[in-house]
């Protein structure tokens, strides 16, 4: 008897969720538009004014460059953090001694505010891009390390014994068992850290950069331009949502071996 492949309620649930999400956002926009009739534009600019500023970001080279710079910084920072975090997780998983030293340090790091890393990086480093990269890596590193360590440790002992019974080389063991085991953890870590990275990059750019979404937000604040501030915020939100969507699609493809109800949403 084959198990049920597709729980039918799931697909309907996805569609409804998407519809409800759109409805909620439309409700928020409507409330904002109503508020714009009663308050001055520097407090509540109209939705068309915000939309115009938002569209303007994508039609002019300079603001588009700022948006792309921020996107690049987020992805580069996450990639660096992922590589370093994977290495730390692997070492902690393989060596109890290393784990005993590294784990408290990573835990300590979790308590350090992003702004402290901004100050430290400005004092330590001269290059703007490296400063931002450093801040991104230091703030998202614990998330990657802990998530990947958990995934590594959750590896099935039964599957490990089974695979070892075929006498694999170390590389084959990594390829056939370890990597497929930690893939769900890797994807979850990326999804969780993406949101963190988007918040941190703005703080880093606010203080230490001459371009990017954070820098532009600072400009809008100095000009009391609420429409511009909202438009730049939406740029960042859209970027995060698009990358989240890409990650979800990758997750669905990578986890296609699971029943539909257990895949990413």
């Amino acid at each position: 008897m084959a198990a049920e492949r597709v729980p039918p309620a799931r697909a309907a649930g996805h569609t409804r969720l998407r519809f409800e999400g759109v409805l909620a956002l439309a409700g928020l926009a409507l409330c904002w538009q109503i508020a714009s009739y009663f308050f001055p534009p520097f407090l509540f600019p109209s939705i068309p004014a915000i939309a115009e500023r938002f569209a303007g970001i994508f039609v002019h080279a300079a603001p588009l460059g700022d948006a792309l710079a921020t996107a690049g910084r987020i992805l580069l920072g996450l990639a660096g953090s992922f590589v370093l975090g994977s290495l730390l997780a692997l070492l902690m998983g393989r060596s109890d001694t290393f784990h005993r030293y590294a784990y408290p340090l990573l835990n300590f790091n979790q308590g350090i505010p992003a702004l402290s890393w901004v100050v430290v990086s400005i004092i330590w480093f001269r290059g703007i891009e490296f400063r931002i990269f450093f801040i991104m890596v230091m703030t998202t590193l614990p998330g990657f390390s802990f998530q990947l360590l958990d995934a590594y440790r959750a590896m099935s002992k039964d599957l490990l014994e089974m695979t070892l019974s075929f006498r694999p080389t170390r590389l084959d063991l990594l390829r056939t068992l370890v990597l497929p085991t930690v893939v769900p953890g890797i994807l979850t870590a990326w999804k969780v850290n993406l949101g963190n990275a988007a918040r941190v990059v703005v703080v880093a750019e606010l203080v230490g950069a001459t371009g990017g979404v954070g820098y532009e937000l600072l400009q809008q604040q100095q000009l009391f331009d609420m429409a511009g501030a909202i438009a730049w915020t939406i740029v960042l939100v859209v970027f995060v949502l698009v990358v989240q969507r890409v990650l979800t699609l990758i997750e669905r493809r990578q986890l296609r071996y699971r029943p539909l109800a257990e895949r990413g949403s």
């Binding site: 039964d158 014994e161 089974m162 019974s165 056939t176 068992l177 497929p180 071996y257």
Partner: peptide, 13 residues
Amino acid sequence: IVFQNDRLMPWRS
């Protein structure tokens, strides 16, 4: 080896 439980890799066909 045939184990007590099947020990199939869930990500493999």
